[in-house]
Design a protein around this nucleic acid. Structure first.
Lengths: 217, 217
DNA sequence: AACTTAAGCGGACCTAGGTCCGGATCGTAA
DNA sequence: TTACGATCCGGACCTAGGTCCGCTTAAGTT
């Protein structure tokens, strides 16, 4: 069975942010904003971060962000598309740093280590990052029908597919990657850690165990 | 490592529907509605089903359902709590039928077959059911912070934990069950089948393969 | 420097989910 | 049958995300 999915017909038109360091084939044309637009964008991100730090991601409205940034509401939506877009933009820094780490950084996360070890390191790194961003990650969840089209997620998914392919020659890497990524779902992590009191250490052990089971010959 | 999670502090107060055949320990006290309330409930479910069949789940507003049922908007929310509650009520029949099948029906779904076979049958059955309900399942997705508290999901999860426990004596059944359930996530199924064109047969093979890997000694 | 135009701005406006509370109704007890 | 209280009804109302469109302005062009 092949592991190549017809690569998911590109979601028609990307609204809002260009946003990703690695576009995996998609055009990486940063539109280069007009001076005033760039200024307002920065103001908005700053205002959003401040408000969220103060009231929590769930307690901040788009109108409040606009007001705090001294900007019209329409400007927020023009720049970021929708609420999810704004929140994902706030997560973008950490995302790009992590992408750089697992695409080109030092082992065991980056190239150089055996694929299974990279897989382990990837999950642990993502779990730890998620744990520190849970509020935002939860609030930034995309609508159900776009969730798997979020660029950051696609990059992570592709990375896992790659590592699996180097480990298991004959398997449905796409589906196995979805399974692995499912374990790293922010909503699940939130549920387990915050609502069930599961300690992070157990989640991390769970990940390593899962990788072992899935990559066992 | 124990597989017993502190069973997730019951979400404070259950709004709306009592809804589940098996409450897994929670009180199963059907409140027995007043005559007019029961009549309106039936009208609402009927109207909702009709409208959704005609316009798709995403194209139906709560107000439209209320109007089609000749009932006030407040009545809808009183009875079902919120939009998600109404949609989940529409899915309840199928859910109860399936619960009955895997809790007490004939093998391989019900008791009698070896646990691994029951696990396989469970996933296949759920996948097929989801495939026929994708619109509704997608629209009925609960808010992120309640998603794992939905009664139907908890019952399914517990069932998987049970089967895993009978198969793997020493494993973190809770976490493995979450992984398996993640594969059966309606949003993922929608993404793969509708957006990527993956045929159901491949998803089913993927499930069996996943069960094998996870339950391998 | 004057002109042009694509990009951006802002806030009025729309929609749809969710809340509230005064009044109507059901079920029961006397 | 009547009286009464708990339950329910309905639609006005609130909120917050998202859209629209006439006006403004940055940034090239001659």
């Amino acid at each position: 069975m092949s592991s190549l999915l017809p690569p998911c017909p590109e979601p028609e038109e990307k609204i809002g942010e260009p946003q990703q360091l690695i576009q995996l084939g998609a055009a990486g044309d940063e539109p280069c904003l007009r001076a005033d637009a760039a200024r307002n964008r920065a103001r908005l991100l700053d205002a959003a971060a401040r408000l969220i730090a103060e009231h929590g991601a769930a307690g901040v409205t788009m109108e409040a962000v606009a007001a705090a940034a001294n900007v019209g509401k329409g400007t927020v939506f023009r720049r970021f598309g929708d609420r999810t877009g704004l929140l994902m933009a706030l997560l973008d820094h950490a995302e790009q740093k992590m992408q750089a780490a697992f695409l080109g950084g030092p082992p065991p996360l980056g190239p150089g280590a055996p694929p299974v070890e990279r897989l382990r390191a990837f999950g642990i790194a993502l779990l730890r990052r998620l744990a520190g961003e849970l509020d935002l990650q939860l609030a930034a969840e995309a609508a159900a029908d776009r969730r798997y089209a979020v660029p950051a997620r696609r990059v992570q998914h592709s990375h896992v597919v790659l590592l699996l392919r180097q480990t298991l020659p004959h398997a449905d890497h796409e589906l196995l990657a979805h399974t692995l990524m499912g374990y790293l779902n922010p909503v699940l992590v939130h549920h387990l850690t915050r609502q069930c009191g599961v300690p992070m250490a157990r989640l991390e052990n769970g990940w390593n165990d899962l990788v072992d089971r899935i990559t066992a010959a």
